[in-house]
Amino acid sequence: MMKLELTTLGLVFAILAAPALAQDYTLSGGGIGEEQIERGEDAFMTNCAGCHGDDLRSVDSNAPDLRGPVFAAGWTGNPLSEKFEKIVSTMPPGRGGSLSDQTYADIVAFILATNGVPATDSELPGDAEALDGYTVTEN
């Protein structure tokens, strides 16, 4: 039953330190814009923060964190379109698709920025097909 070895335990305790707000991640395929991040922050606070927390730490037991280790594990490596489509179709719960695709993209830009993806002068498009070519990687 003891699956967790001490080394893992040490690792977990070490990782705790990393509120990933520095430039920890790179976005390839395009960029997120300053103004977009601000728009996304507003939309996130209104539509998402009630469950996912205004600091992206979940305040609802069923909702995942959108930062830290959960972000590192869930948002990196795959086409960004996957997360985008999941958010558009299911969030907020029961009201999937209730915001415009561009607003969802703005929210994604805000989530990426909060996790340390640097801003550029281009913006994330509200278009799943285009986001197929975007990937987040850990630095």
Binding site: L11, V12, I15, P64, D65, G68, P69, V70, G74
Partner: peptide
């Protein structure tokens, strides 16, 4: 289902599921 580490600090935690 993928479980992940969480921030082991006061205010950290959450459900630890990333997918």
């Amino acid at each position: 289902v993928v479980y992940t580490e969480v921030e082991m600090v006061e205010g950290g935690g959450g459900n630890g599921r990333s997918a």
